[in-house]
């Protein structure tokens, strides 16, 4: 075995397909995680000039969670180029129009603006729900860990379990729950 073959690593430049579940995730935080995989920053062979980025499939993008009152306060700016063509769209309006747009813009903005950015974005697939076309899903071999734990809603826990959960006291009869 030659010295070069001894350290050969197979499929080093192969593209891996990752899936990322956006449910209850902050798009601006997860953009930095997604960016890392898209650009290949998670590989020790990374170099800005070599094409080692992976493909990321984002699912459940309609279930993203924004911090605080960001749904109401964050505005997305667009200008048509004509005088008076400026428009500001609030995050909730944009999300109603296109549930994939917020995460897409977040990932786009997390990368530095260079000629490679638009090509890197081509490797990002975003789906509003967990229904992904079969020809995309069959390539996926890895799942990116979510940043935040997805909490279980109280009304999704079976009623018996809620009833049997130990509690300190019962509310008085005349107590009005907010």
């Amino acid at each position: 075995m030659s010295a070069a073959k001894r350290v050969q690593q197979w499929a080093t430049f192969a593209r891996t397909w990752h899936v990322f579940d956006c449910k209850w995730q902050d798009p601006y935080e997860s953009a930095h995680v997604i960016k890392k995989y898209l650009m290949g920053l998670h590989k020790p062979i990374y170099h800005p000039m070599n094409d080692c980025g992976d493909v990321v499939v984002c699912i459940n993008s309609k279930d993203i969670a924004l911090r605080g009152n960001e749904w109401r306060k964050r505005a997305y700016f667009h200008h048509t180029g004509y005088p008076g063509g400026a428009s500001w769209t609030l995050a909730w309006e944009l999300h109603n129009k296109d549930p994939t747009m917020i995460i897409k813009k977040a990932v786009y903005r997390s990368m530095t603006g260079n000629l490679q950015r638009r090509h890197t974005m081509q490797r990002l697939f975003i789906y509003p729900e967990d229904k992904v076309p079969e020809d995309v899903m069959q390539n996926v071999t890895n799942q990116i860990r979510q940043i935040r734990l997805v909490p279980t809603r109280l009304d999704h826990i079976p009623e018996e379990e809620v009833k049997n959960f130990p509690k300190i006291m019962d509310y008085p009869e005349d107590y009005v729950l907010k």
């Binding site: 998670h42 590989k43 020790p44 062979i45 990374y46």
Partner: peptide, 13 residues
């Protein structure tokens, strides 16, 4: 900077 990026990614693994 490049070496730092590479070491960081390897450490994460």
């Amino acid at each position: 900077e490049l070496w730092d990026t590479r070491i960081t990614s390897a450490c994460e693994q």
